[in-house]
Every structure is written in structure tokens, then in C-alpha cells.
Design a protein around this nucleic acid. Sequence first.
DNA 1: AATTTTCTTGCATACGTATTCAAATCTGGC
DNA 2: GCCAGATTTGAATACGTATGCAAGAAAATT
Lengths: 359, 359
Amino acid sequence: MDGGVGAKKPGVTSSQVAEHAGVSQSAVSRTFTPGASISSKTRAKVLASAKELGYRPNAIARSLITNRSRIIAVVMAYLENLFYPDVLEELGRRLAAEDYHLLLFTGFMDRDSDPVFDQLMQYRVDGIILASTSLSSDLSEECATAGIPVVLFNRTTQRDAVSSVTTRNRDGGRKIAEFLVAGGHKSFGYIAGLESSSTNRDRFLGFAEGLQAHGFTDIALGKGNYSRLDAEAAARDMLSGPNRPEAIFVANDHMAVAVMDVARHEFGIAVPEQLSIVGYDDVGPARWTSYGITSMSQPLKKMVEATVDILMDQITSGEIEAEHRILSGELVVRTSARLPKTGVVDIDGRKLYRPKDTA
Amino acid sequence: MDGGVGAKKPGVTSSQVAEHAGVSQSAVSRTFTPGASISSKTRAKVLASAKELGYRPNAIARSLITNRSRIIAVVMAYLENLFYPDVLEELGRRLAAEDYHLLLFTGFMDRDSDPVFDQLMQYRVDGIILASTSLSSDLSEECATAGIPVVLFNRTTQRDAVSSVTTRNRDGGRKIAEFLVAGGHKSFGYIAGLESSSTNRDRFLGFAEGLQAHGFTDIALGKGNYSRLDAEAAARDMLSGPNRPEAIFVANDHMAVAVMDVARHEFGIAVPEQLSIVGYDDVGPARWTSYGITSMSQPLKKMVEATVDILMDQITSGEIEAEHRILSGELVVRTSARLPKTGVVDIDGRKLYRPKDTA
DNA sequence: AATTTTCTTGCATACGTATTCAAATCTGGC
DNA sequence: GCCAGATTTGAATACGTATGCAAGAAAATT
């Protein structure tokens, strides 16, 4: 299937437009270069000819000379979790607004992101957004020396030269602990995401801290790996044990929904009467009334905005200094967990957990 | 934010590698061109130097000379419906396997796909996949004259020069009608997708035909526009009326889930005891046990495979002749609709509706 | 060993654009 | 109508690669 000989029509070039308009090729180029020195008269001539011939500047050729592709690579290994499609959609909007384009890498196992990386580099992308995958250390270093900005989305790392955008996952985990303790729960479980992800670690850390502050040190653990199937299995395990926890914090909503399905329909457990479930992300299905998952929200639009901001900054300045933006979410209260006596407030039609004593 | 002067590191060129290896630039090029005439000895030398210098062929420059970008544009206005992220993931896999890359356009209103089109053309993409948006007639024509293959995914059109991949939506609609009639339902409703979409038209057409064959000509109608919010509104309307239908066919699962939520939680209607709901796509949430939507499946992987096949064919042959691939789905039976006495069979753990009398 | 045939190789050129530089044109003030 | 200055213009070049062509090297044939 390679080496095809199909002839694509050559396409109109700036020289052809130039000839048709009776000007030089430079003039055509300048017409389509914002801020270039060109008189309105010749500009008009060129535009007329361009329209007549159906000319469009060749972005490929332009990239070659400017050394700017105006392409941002977005790497998302999987899109199963609706959070990421939402991110993608917003990224599409924001990048388009900046006149950038989105080269998507998806549909591969998390492990083999390295071959993907080769492709990235070949297209001389102007920036890289890593959303549901990581990058081996030498690769991120290679980006740095190549002068390509890299932003981790919803995860972080210690390496310098790699920026990140996250929310206060540790605070979030702690807040969820507070909420569940205030709700009178006495035993707890945690169903984890990918254990290698910083986000998962931080959420658990905060959760454990928050519980410990009230004297609870025992947490039932399950491994969900951010995957629906794994989360289901973990839930079965946790719920069938002799001492089933009264409350489970699931590392994200995508898995929380699965856990709730297992609890209700496989075990006949009433949620929230017999079991409280709290998730993270506040993603679409969490809001659907069948689930109504109480969940820490992540300010998706602001996160995307920050991501694009960082990229644009680094691209225009040429300075690649790691920048870490950390945003805050809210604990959105719905019906999947028993409520505390106080602390739930109504704001703009959303119920949020905002206790007096905590920050 | 434009006109930045940030200096991206130049990057290693083939000439530099050539010099380092003591060969000509041509030799370097041939080393990285599969099937080119090069001795294994010099090839080895080049590869060694390339590795040492960290050389990667510049895809941009290559595109300029070959007139092939190895980029496929994928246009998906919205990703709210999980069906499309799933498609995207599979597309990512398949295109990567063919050594093609995916330039994604998303996050804009369906109407303004025309500015998007300009961008497409500037990058000289080798093919275009239109998944959740259409293209105005003159634009598809322009693609044809430019020699760029276009494939409509999950919708179709009469224009020649534009290929399409769909399933037998009309048959699907008819089968759903048969299923509901066999289930003993006497009154019916339809909640539509975007009225301009061929897919929506065909599904409704088949549904109406199937009902008519059994003497039912009255169908309650609602407009869901493939949007969750609109579907909810349509459901409220349809369910609060004086003669609420016993069975509703919702044009896709994304909306069916919303309709079910409204029925159960806003109206307290028992599904399927008091109301049957059937959807289309067999997408993730339809399978979740809280919903268990009975749904016509679309063979996503085969659809994507066909799409990529068509593109590769047309790219390599240079012949852009419209090709229309039409695949078949199955009616996957779950718990959202009352069952007919006969015709539901168990295959590979899935329950399918396969009545004896129909094809 | 001489000759033909097949492989390799380097040179030169082309792809379509942006940009430098010097020449040409225009502007306004006298 | 003349000159300094500002603006506009075109010629030439560069970006990094692929490829036709002719020459050279190696292999195969006689």
C-alpha cells in the first residue's frame, strides 16, 4: 500500500498568482503575511488574482522557511474516560483561536509512547501536550534541547523543562476525607488509578492524610488503573470482603460510575444508604441522574486555558522554563454519598461542600 | 501573541549527517527512504552518524518535495457523544498503522466548518474524514478538483466524489419497529437526531415503514438534535403529554440515556415495565448496567477499517471515485425494552434480536 | 581478462514559501 | 521642481529533503 503513484493535483502556487496579477512572488507572499510591507493597491490586485485562481498559501512550504509548523501535538493514549474528549474539544477551540492546529496521537497502549515521539519530532511540532500518557525521561530532555515546549496535562513531574497543569489533588483528596468523616462514615476504601500517575498518588495521599487527622488509619485498597474493567473487578473484590467499607473514594468518575454499577446491580447495595461513593473530575456521566456522583470538580476550561497559555508563552519567547500551574476545584455534592450535617452550600444551582473550619 | 521571535534550535539536517558520515546528502536521504538504492555498508555508516547526531528526517521538507503530507484531517464538530471518541481512538490506531497522522478539527459549531476547510487545504492534507459535520457542496467539489479524497463517516450524501461509510440505518430502524411490535407495544414515539443528517432520516424512515407494516401510522415525535439537553427537553415533552407512547425509539444511545434518566427520575416511570426505550450505536453507556439500553449496534472497528481503506485506495491510486460502504449491525437486546416472545438469541454472550421471518 | 549487466553514488535541481538587500517609487515640505 | 525621508517593490537566496541522471564500482557473464 506504500509507494503509490496517484497524482495529486499540483495546486496553485504563489508564483502563479504573481504572474496572473503582474507582480512579483514576493508581493504575493507579503499579501498573506500579516504586517508585511505592502501597498493596499497591489494587495488588492493580489487578492483578486488569488481568489480567481483559488490560491491558498502552502502551510508546509511556509513551515519549512519559518521553522514554525503551527502544529501542536496532543498525546492521549486513551479516550475511554469522557474527561479527555471534553479536554480535546476545548483544546480544539483554544488552539484554533490561536491559529494553531492539533495533531492527535491516540489509540496506543500507554507504554509504547516512544515510537509516537519519533513521529512528533519528524513533524517539527511547535509544542507537545501530554494528557493521558507520560514520557520517558530522556525523551523529555530531548524535547528541551530541541527547544520544544512540553506541557503535562493533569499530571506532573519533577523533571525541569517539562511544565504541567494540574489541580490541587492532594487538597482534593483531603477534602473528600473531611466530607466523608463529617458524613459519619467509619470505614473507608480507595480504588486507585494508575499507580504510576502523580495525580493518583496525590489524591490518595490527601485522602489518607485527611482520614488520619480523624484517627482513621485503615483504608481498604483496590486497583482500578483508570480502567472501567479493572475498577469493576476491584469493586467486586472490595465489596465482597467480610468488612466492606462504608465509603469509597474512587480516583476518578469514570471508574466511580463502574463501581456504583457493581455495588447496586451486582451486590444489591443501596447507594448512598448502605454505601457512599465519591469520585473525581465531575465529568458528564457523574452528573447524569442515574449516577449523581459526588465528585471533586476539575476546572477543565481553565486548565486548558492555562495549558495553551504556557505553550504560547514558551513558543513566542523561546524560553523553555518549566512552569507549573495548579488550579482549584470544588467538591460538588450530589446523591452518591451521605451528607454531613453542615457545610453543604448552594451556589449557582450547584451544591458544594464548603465547611467553615477548613480553608 | 503573534510574531514571536523565540528561536527554536535549528535541528540536525541530512547534510550534517552526510558530512559526518563522509557521504553525500543523497545517501542520507536514501537511507531513510524505504526501497531506495543504497548499499548496506553506507547505510550502516549513515545510521550510525544519524544516531550519534540525533537526526530525524524533517517530515515538513519531505512533504514539500513529495507532495504528500501523510496527514489525514479528521473533522468532528463535537465529542460529547462517546461514540465519536471511540471512533477517534480506533482511527488513531489504524492511521498510525499506515504511517499516517491525524490532524483533528473539533470544538466548533457545526455550521462554521467552512473556515476549518481553509486550514485543511493549507496543510495539503492527503485525505479528509468528516465524522460529525457536513461540508457545503462547493467545498466537497473543491476537494475533488484538488484531488483530495473525502470520506463521510456515519452519514452519506448524493454528491459524487464524496465517499461514505455507514450502516444500514433504514434496516436498523425497521428492525427496531419489528422488535417493539413483537414486544406487544401499541403506541410509539421517536426522538430524532439532527434533522439534516442522512443517518437520522434513514433511521426514522425505516422505523416508520416497519410500524406501518403492522398498521401503526401514528408516531409521537420529538427533536433531540443529537444533543443531551435537547433530548431531555423532547423527552419531557413526550412523556408529559396525555397519550404517552409505550415505546420510544431514540435516534442514538447518547440521547437514549438522557431520555431514560428523565423518564425514570423526573417522571417516576418504570423502564421497561411502563415504557420501552431503544437506542442506536451500542455505545459505552448503553452497556452500563444502570442503563442497559437495547440498541442497534454499529460495527465501529469495521467502519473505521472501511474508512481508512477507502482513503488509502484513493490516495495511492489517485482515482477519486465515490465509494459507498454500507455495513450491518445487530439489535443488541438488554433491559430497556420489553422482550418479544421469540426471536432473541444468545450469541457469544450477547443477546441479539434475530427473528426467524425477517432477513 | 574482457565485457556486459546490475548496483551505488554524487551532483544538480526542484518543491513553495519568507526574507534580506538594494533599487525604485512615492510623500510632503520648501 | 527639488530633495530628504519613508514606503514599496523585485531579484536573489535559503529552508531540508527527494530524485533524475550520468558516472563509477561491483558483480556476473563470456
